[in-house]
Design a protein around this nucleic acid. Structure first.
Length: 609
RNA sequence: GGAGCCGUAGUUCAGUUGGUUAGAACGCCGGCCUGUCACGCCGGAGGCCGCGAGUUCGAGUCUCGUCGGCUCCGCCA
């Protein structure tokens, strides 16, 4: 296209005509050219990162997905191309043809892969202009997240964010190669499916054809993958979107991606070996990182005992210690009367200021704690503490021994209900690990958590609910417990934890109708109800379901940890805000009355003043 | 459902005890500039201080409410 299309110069600045590709072909990405390409004629395309207009020479850093290359417009080399280049601005889209040439002596830029060379422009095309972006397309500036999310298409141009998606793709391809190599079939399962009463809230989709009836978006393809095992597919996987209508967190989005896996004729060991291999291969192929073989293992009970949480970050120590016995019958009633007293000893923690301790006290209150007792061990060995005056000499001696107390340490205590004590101290441990720099960045500590309880008590519903899901089988010999002591029965379930995040969870499933019925009755679901809600599962189990089990990984979380991103939003292209809205598209939104009528849906009248 | 932090120029932020005309840096616009690379120099434009009430002679500043973003508790089999 040429200037003749724009006859009205008052509207179209003659330097601002926009051109078509005109048969130009890009020859390289902007991270590719080095001294090895000297004197080659190349064609680059991309966005203008920086413009440095010296009046004479004009330099442009041209950015594409892969990197930056410096481009030079020289008045001597091509006066016409140089003259037009004055009009170039940030984020303009340009195509340049030119020669690779060395930068003058001492002018190389060691920060760039392409820093030894530059492209001197023979000719160039303006492919598009750009308004000044609402925020700089750079990594070094922290922009408000609301702006970033509204202009997500610009945010994604930032190299640090773009890199996350390059890695995410590599990771997904690595997983596919690995699983395909082991004979897994990638099979798609429905997105419009049946609402499941257990578990998270469902996203519902009204059926126009069946007024008053609703599909649910899957929380996971759990039952479908079990059906595929009954179908004899033997090994299934899927990288699949799942949906849960629950409140968001830094590592939780309402729609997220799972690597969903199921296998027939397996026990825990087979599934775990396969999963470990997948994660090890993934880290090797994408980060060039070797993970331990095999992964360390810990029971749920040990995790709660030593770390207070079921997903411990084992990159650092600071284990909790149970000191209940020391204070049985103590004069310090708060400890004596508590069902559980736990201790967290922090070597070198004596340097904590009073304000920091106050902040930590507020922090543990989040978890229902009534307060945070502490003892500072001074350099002379003296114990400084608001509570130590209530301790007997014997109690102090036992405490010093069990905690291996050293001068300069601080001891934190929690006393009371087990769940509050564990949550408070377990989370305080993480904060202190950070505060004292105990966590080495760039290290990865995978850990299997095993022997989960099968059931847990739902205080709100006043009944037992499945801790994992109601299709998880009990460990051998634990069936009797189900009747006598529901809380004690252990499940054939396992979680994979990485750096304190649950990245995967799975189980060996129930594969006989009798066992499944027993499970349902333990959950207070009678036969009739089970038939209505899970009839197809009960049917399927009757027709030769093989023993099977599997695991599902949270791909987003995994990528978040691998990239070091602080939020899952930084590894999801178009994430939702904490209020579960999309700032870019402004979804969700109201719909036309006619759409509602068609669906047979009437909205509640808006409340008037 | 609840708690906390934040909201001032396009962006990132400062703004004292409530007190004249709300500042800085970067960006943007104009001019100059042939080796810069976050180029440099000179000049300029740019503000409903999120929104709404209240207190006050006077509010960016204090109070209440509200909207939005974030973090967390509950929730998330």
């Amino acid at each position: 296209m040429s200037e003749q299309n724009f006859q009205d110069d008052s509207v179209y600045d003659k330097y601002r005509w926009i051109d078509e590709l005109g048969g130009w072909r890009r020859t390289h990405h902007n991270n590719q050219l080095t001294a090895a390409n000297m004197d080659e004629s190349v064609c680059l395309m991309g966005w203008v990162q920086f413009r440095r207009d010296h009046g004479g020479l004009i330099f442009i850093d041209l950015r594409d997905r892969e990197g930056l290359t410096q481009v030079v417009f020289s008045p001597e080399h091509n006066p016409e191309a140089h003259e037009r280049a004055h009009a170039i601005r940030s984020e303009y889209v340009v195509a340049i043809k030119g020669q690779v040439r060395p930068r003058p002596e001492g002018m190389a830029n060691s920060n760039l892969v392409t820093g030894e060379i530059e492209i001197v422009v023979d000719e160039w095309k303006l492919l598009n202009t750009s308004e000044t972006p609402p925020f700089p397309i750079e990594d070094r500036i922290e922009v408000g997240e609301n702006l970033r999310l509204k202009y997500r298409f610009l945010d994604l141009r930032r190299p640090s964010l773009a890199r996350n998606f390059v890695l995410r793709n590599k990771a997904a391809q690595s997983v596919r190669r690995y699983l395909d190599g082991l004979g897994f079939l990638e099979i798609e399962t429905p997105v419009l499916t049946k609402s499941t009463p257990e578990g998270a809230r469902d996203f519902l989709v009204p059926s126009r054809v069946n007024p008053g009836q609703f599909f649910a978006l899957p929380q996971s393809p759990q039952l479908f993958k079990q059906m595929l095992m009954v179908s004899g597919m033997e090994r299934y996987f899927q990288i699949v979107k799942c949906f849960r209508d629950e409140d968001l967190r830094a590592d939780r989005q309402p729609e997220f991606t799972q690597i969903d896996i199921e296998m027939s004729f397996v026990d825990e060991q087979i599934v775990q070996d396969m999963a470990e291999g997948m994660v090890r291969t993934l880290f090797r192929e994408t980060l060039n990182q070797e993970l331990p073989d095999p992964f360390p293992r810990m029971t749920f009970a040990d995790a709660m005992r030593d770390y207070g949480v079921d997903k411990p970050d084992v990159r650092f120590g600071l284990k909790l210690q149970n000191v209940s016995d020391i204070f049985k019958g103590s004069g310090f009633k708060v400890f004596a009367q508590a069902s559980l007293v736990k201790l967290l000893c922090v070597p070198g923690g004596g340097e904590l200021s009073r304000k920091e301790i106050d902040d930590y006290t507020k922090f543990v209150e989040i978890y229902g704690s009534k307060g945070l007792a502490w003892i500072k061990v001074k350099e002379d060995g003296e114990w400084q503490s608001p509570i130590v005056k209530f301790f007997s000499e014997e109690e102090k001696a036992k405490l010093a021994e069990i905690a291996d107390v050293q001068p300069g340490d601080i001891l934190f205590f929690q006393a009371g209900q087990a769940d509050i004590v564990n949550a408070a101290l377990g989370n305080l441990r993480l904060k202190l690990g950070e505060r004292f720099g105990l966590i080495e960045e760039g290290t990865f500590a995978p850990l299997w958590i095993t022997d989960f309880p099968l059931l847990e008590w739902d205080e709100e519903a006043k009944r037992w609910v499945a801790r994992h899901h109601p299709f998880t089988s009990a460990q051998p010999g634990q069936l009797e417990e189900l009747d006598k002591n529901p809380g004690e029965a252990l499940a054939r379930a396992y979680d994979l934890v990485l750096n304190g995040h649950e990245i995967g969870g799975g189980s060996i499933r129930i594969h006989t109708p009798e066992m499944q019925q027993k499970m349902f009755s333990a959950l207070g679901i009678n036969e009739q109800e089970a038939r209505a809600k899970f009839g197809f599962l009960m049917d399927a189990l009757k027709f030769g379901a093989p023993p099977h089990g599997g695991i599902a990984f949270g791909l987003d979380r995994l990528i978040m940890i691998m990239t070091g991103a602080k939020s899952i939003r930084d590894v999801i292209a178009f994430p939702k805000t904490q209020k579960a809205t999309c700032m870019m598209t402004e979804a969700p939104s109201e719909v036309a009355a006619s759409q509602l009528r068609e669906l047979g849906i009437r909205l509640r009248e808006k409340k008037e003043e």
